[in-house]
Amino acid sequence: MARVVRLGAVAAGAVGALIAARRVRRAGGPGKTGPTWLGVTVLAPPDRIAAGGELPEPLRALGDAVEVRMQPAPGDRGTEVYARLRDDGQGSGTAARLTGRDRMGPLRQALREAKSLVETGEVLRTDAVETTHPGPRGRLIAALDERAQKAGRL
């Protein structure tokens, strides 16, 4: 059953642009179709996440392909930031999701990077370690590393 997501009173004028985006119909729950929301919780108030009404660069860069909404997280946890592709296209299997090869890959990466930028001011870059002689397992690890930010459970 689709339901209207109720929004808490989080938004001040600065994020007015987001309010409309937040009042969306959500098709969720078992057996329902429609784009899935991916969420991260950011330890910051909404007006820092969308300073001057602008979303953090990694999310902004995805442009109209995504919609974003925010709501306060319970307790002292900050703000829940959700994003989804406007057009979900074909659903994707677990293997594609785990390896970041599904269509949600860029969205996962953008959410993680946006969170890190807001919270810490940077996106950590890992060390570029060259492998000496990759075996099959080494090659698998390298392939997964390359898409790590797009993959996983988010």
Binding site: L98, T99, G100, R112, K115, S116, E119, T120, L124, R125, T126, L144, D145, R147, A148, Q149, A151, G152, R153
Partner: peptide
Amino acid sequence: CDNTNTNPVHTQA
């Protein structure tokens, strides 16, 4: 920490 593991995929699985 939420922001330091740049390769979350293995341990999330």
